[in-house]
Design a protein around this nucleic acid. Structure first.
Length: 115
DNA sequence: CCATTGACTTAAG
DNA sequence: CCTTAAGCCAATG
């Protein structure tokens, strides 16, 4: 093995965490970033999500911003699919924002435990 | 190679 | 409540 299977570390990690998000729950870019050790580089998580198109079955709709707003909904096939899926999983969305966001917030740092 | 942008976040006014 | 500014790192032109 040489320098072939590197790169994508961050992306892979993001995808894994996103897929680990349980139904009816949501998380934020910052939380994922922190879990990955990028703490303040929540933007990179966003970029990773931008590349999520190469990962089918990725529940990107469960990832919202710190405000619980569906900021990335416009990047979905039909933008309304994001909130649609969330509602489908039992997550109430109002005005492009997740209702009781704090309650259904899923923090990988907590749920996946910190070591 | 430099400049701009981006699915973010926090702080300050 | 809304606007600016700055920090962060990668991708794109």
């Amino acid at each position: 093995m040489k320098l072939s299977e590197k790169n994508k570390d961050f992306f892979e990690m993001v995808f894994q965490v996103v897929q680990l998000i349980p139904p009816g729950r949501v998380t934020s870019y910052g939380a994922i970033a922190r879990y990955l050790g990028s703490a303040q580089s929540s933007r990179m998580v966003g970029w990773a999500m931008h590349a999520s198109h190469q990962v089918p079955g990725l529940p990107a709709h469960r990832v919202v911003n710190r405000n619980g707003l569906l900021t990335g909904k416009v990047h979905f096939d039909p933008p309304e699919m994001m909130e649609k899926r969330l509602q489908q999983e039992g997550v109430s969305v109002k005005d492009d924002a997740v209702v009781d966001f704090k309650k259904i917030f899923w923090d990988p740092n907590v749920e996946l435990e910190i070591k």
